[in-house]
């Protein structure tokens, strides 16, 4: 499944990093401690986090994650959005919380 399919199926909103929406999604990872994510998430994961600091883009880029999903309509810092455009890492917003997102992602087979 591609990032664009995931967005369409769950009716989510891509806010930046449109250059990466055709990336393949392989599994989901959810954690808010970036050092932990750096050592545990794997290539292709859709990553759910409440962190909106620009470092999330560096982490996603380093691990070649497919996209970042920010739950609960958290406002995202401008610098983070700029960096996501530069790195073509889609940043996706949702009103659901992390648990609800996981359930929905599981239902659509991610």
């Amino acid at each position: 499944m591609k990032v664009s399919d995931l967005v369409e199926k769950l009716n989510l909103k891509v806010v930046s990093g449109f250059g990466g929406i055709e990336k393949e999604v392989k599994g989901v990872y959810t954690c808010d401690l970036l050092s932990w994510v750096m050592s545990h998430a794997v290539k292709g994961n859709a990553w759910i986090t409440v962190q909106v600091h620009p470092n999330i883009i560096a982490v996603a880029s380093l691990l070649e994650l497919s996209c970042i999903i920010i739950p609960e309509d958290i406002e995202i810092e401008d610098v983070t959005l700029e960096k996501s455009n530069q790195e073509a890492i889609p940043v996706i917003k949702s009103s659901m919380n992390s648990y609800e997102l996981c359930l929905k992602l599981s239902q659509i087979g991610v």
Binding site: L34, S35, M38, Q51, N55
Partner: peptide, 9 residues
Amino acid sequence: VIYNLGFIP
């Protein structure tokens, strides 16, 4: 900062 944000910006 290193645990939560991975590294120092």
